[in-house]
C-alpha cells in the first residue's frame, strides 16, 4: 500500500509518535522529530538513550510498536537506495575475505539488480568514492589489514557511492584517529554544502558546536531539537545527561 499523497515532504526526516520497545521497557517513547533538508544534524544522548534504535527504526531495521516515519515525504520502502547508511563499524566481521573496493561496491548491489555482477562502471564508482575518503591507495587491500579509522572510511565510501540525498551515520567518530575524524567531518560538511542531509549519531559533546548545525538531544524521549545555537544549552544537556554531564563535558565553560 503506497501512500499516494506525500506526508510532510518538506522534511528530510519526519518522525511522529514513534515508540519502540524491547520487552516491557520502552527504548524510545513517543518521538516527534523533524530534520529539515540540507542540515548536518547530530543526535546525542547518554548511553541507552536509544540513539541507534532511533535510526534503526527510521530505516525499518527495528519494528516500532507505534508511530510512523517519512523521508522527504516518502515511506522508507520507497526511499531504499536513496539513503546512504553507515552502520557501526563493529557490527561486521572485518576478517571477512574480501578487499576494500569490494566492500564499497556493495553499496551499488541494489542498483545493479538481481542476477548481475558489478562491472567496470561499478569498479570506477567505487574507486572514486574511495578517493573521496582518501583511501584510493587501499582499494585492493584486504579489509582485515585496515585500521579502525580506515575501516570507518571504507564504510563511509560504501554509503557515498550510492550518491544518496540523505546520509545516516551511526557513531562514525567512535574510536577513530584524528586524521579520520577530520577527513570524515570535512567530507560530511562538503556534502551538506552540496545540499545533502547528513544525520549523525554522535557521542562527543565537545565537538557538537564545531561540527554540526542541527542538534537532536535524546534520552528515550526527545529532550530538545533544532539549530545547535538554540538547543545546545546547559539546561537541555542537564535534562538529558543528568549527573553524568560533569564527567562528559563542561557545558557552562564551553557555552557563550
Amino acid at each position: 500500500m503506497r501512500d499516494a499523497a506525500l506526508h510532510e515532504p518538506g522534511q528530510a526526516l519526519h518522525v511522529e509518535d514513534l515508540t519502540v520497545s524491547y520487552g516491557t521497557d520502552p527504548a524510545l517513547w513517543d518521538i516527534d522529530l523533524d530534520i529539515p533538508p540540507g542540515v548536518m544534524c547530530a543526535i546525542v544522548g547518554p548511553n541507552g538513550a536509544g540513539k541507534s534504535t532511533l535510526i534503526k527504526a527510521a530505516l525499518g531495521l527495528v519494528r516500532p510498536v507505534a508511530g510512523h516515519v517519512r523521508f522527504l515525504g516518502h515511506e522508507i520502502g520507497a526511499m531504499r537506495g536513496r539513503i546512504g547508511y553507515v552502520p557501526q563499524r563493529h557490527s561486521v566481521d572485518w576478517d571477512f575475505p574480501t578487499t576494500t573496493r569490494d566492500v564499497v561496491e556493495m553499496g551499488l548491489y541494489r542498483s545493479i539488480g538481481w542476477f548481475r555482477r558489478p562491472g567496470r562502471a561499478a569498479r570506477d564508482r567505487a574507486l572514486a568514492a574511495l578517493a573521496e575518503v582518501g583511501m584510493q591507495d587501499y582499494a585492493d587491500r584486504q579489509i582485515s589489514q585496515l585500521s579502525g579509522g580506515q575501516q570507518q572510511r571504507v564504510f563511509l565510501a560504501r554509503a557515498l557511492v550510492q550518491d544518496a540525498p540523505i546520509l545516516i551515520l551511526d557513531e562514525p567518530m567512535a574510536g577513530v584517529d584524528a586524521t579520520t575524524e577530520a577527513v570524515i567531518i570535512d567530507l560530511l560538511k562538503r556534502l551538506r554544502d552540496a545540499g545533502r542531509t547528513v544525520i549523525v549519531v554522535h557521542h562527543d559533546l565537545t565537538t557538537v558546536q564545531s561540527h554540526f548545525d542541527w542538534l537532536v538531544i535524546l534520552n528515550i524521549r526527545i529532550i530538545a531539537q533544532g539549530p545547535v545555537r538554540d538547543v545546545y544549552t546547559p539546561e537541555n544537556l542537564r535534562a538529558a545527561y543528568g549527573r553524568q554531564l560533569a564527567m562528559i563535558a563542561e557545558p557552562a565553560g564551553a557555552l557563550p
Binding site: G60, R80, P87, V92, V103, M106, Y109, R110, I112
Partner: peptide
C-alpha cells in the same frame, strides 16, 4: 545469488537497510 549472499554474509544490517 552470489553478490546477495556475499552482502548478507558480510553485513546483513546494511543489506536490510538497502531493501534486500
Amino acid at each position: 545469488f552470489w553478490k546477495e549472499f556475499k552482502l548478507v554474509s558480510f553485513d546483513a544490517g546494511f543489506a536490510r537497510a538497502q531493501g534486500f
